[in-house]
Design a protein around this nucleic acid. Structure first.
Lengths: 229, 229
DNA sequence: ATAATAGTGTCTGTGAGACATTATACC
DNA sequence: GGTATAATGTCTCACAGACACTATTAT
């Protein structure tokens, strides 16, 4: 280091808003805090960035260590939270990330034996989470809802092969709205580069079997799937 | 502080991508670095966050100290940049901000006597800026271009009272595209809550005098002003 | 009058939403 | 056949883009 010793010093953490849809319920991954500050309170998974680690790597590592969730389909930076006093132990800036995963079943907890659980977003927002994690969660949820309109992020909530009805279920759960199946089908399959048909059908349903798709390479879906005004 | 002494320690800075439109040219505010690291190279204005200051306040302070620009019409967080090695002096995380200001005339430089100048975005992106500021600038420009579609941010590039032609000039400069004046007029004035007519006209132009407007209270413009496909 | 810019009208194509209709499975 | 879901077709309305046209100023 070549900074003089009177430069202000900070601690930097990452926190992860990890979202999924489980049985039609829009859910977020929470970890119960063990020993130390805010013990026993629920919080977003996260922790201190290591000295030689970039921010995204730290987010991925903390997510797995605290909750056992590996390799989410999407992980991107959300925003940073650095108000003085947001952590009573010192000056901590947290770089929050947004992760999206398909339904992975119950959370097992991570290698450091903290408890982890999927909680419905509605419930989580009503809880009193640790630090400023209510604010971070609100921002993450808002980002996810907005991104559904113009990005293929909905497919990140689904397994690699999925039906149009699966995808519609994601939109309905995240937006908390009912969508017309017929119009949704036409719009989703018509958005260029969004869905790639696999030529096979899904079994197990009650009616006519649905085509299977995988997500295409487009980074924006066009025209966007607008949430009804 | 109650962290044990072996927690990793970081320095936290803010950098500001401050954008404007000057005589039809989409421009960014750069500062020439004085003594110290990367001396003589152009950089985004920014600096270290003070111990008791929140991030947005720090961004506002650094912008004024280094360039003399006060109270931009918009200042919001952009993203954080924290790769190990992005600053050779130590582990520095920079929280970048996006600012938008109307044309303020030539930059005078700030109280600490560094040089500051408005540079066309095109030129700035071709320069080799300090640290990872080329990346930050790219991200800021992309954010601004995207926000024009659905937010009233274009008005932040204008003085408090402006004409529809002024506003169109912002879109054309930022997007680098020509827009049909007739259709733009209909869309801009038709977007609910975007423009508030003042009932007065602007003088000085060559043709029929244009109505003056101020920006409305809407946070999203609807329907959006889409950039032509 | 001419030029220049502001602002409106009109036409056409695309897409959204409502909803009817057909297709294909299980019971 | 009855029911459930997938997928397509049809109709109407709103809006985007192209562009003709009118309005109001300066020279």
């Amino acid at each position: 280091m070549s900074f003089s010793s009177d430069y202000p010093v900070f601690y930097v953490t990452v926190d992860v808003v990890c979202l999924t849809v489980r049985d039609g319920v829009f859910s977020v991954l929470l970890a119960e805090r063990g020993e130390g500050e805010q013990k026993g309170r629920w919080a977003l998974p996260g922790g201190f960035v290591h000295p030689d680690e970039d921010l995204e790597t730290a987010a991925r590592r903390e997510l797995e260590e605290e909750t056992g969730v590996r390799a989410p389909a999407l992980l991107e930076q959300l925003a940073s939270y650095g108000d003085p006093g947001r952590d009573p132990r010192g000056r901590v800036v947290s770089v929050a990330h947004l992760a999206v995963a398909p339904d992975l079943g119950d959370a097992t907890g991570g290698s450091d034996a903290t408890a982890a659980a999927w909680v419905s977003v509605e419930t989580a927002l009503r809880k009193r989470l640790a630090f400023d994690h209510n604010l971070i969660l609100r921002d993450g949820v808002a980002r996810a809802r907005a991104k559904l309109e113009w990005s293929p992020v909905a497919a990140s909530f689904c397994p690699p092969e999925f039906t149009v009805a699966d995808l519609r279920g994601v939109y309905e759960a995240v937006w908390g709205a009912r969508l017309d199946p017929a119009n949704f089908h036409r719009k989703a399959t018509g958005a260029r580069g969004f869905l790639v048909p696999l030529g096979r059908t899904a079994g197990g349903g009650r009616g006519r079997p649905a085509q299977l798709y995988r997500v295409g390479s487009a980074t924006r879906i066009h025209p966007p799937l607008t949430i009804s005004d």
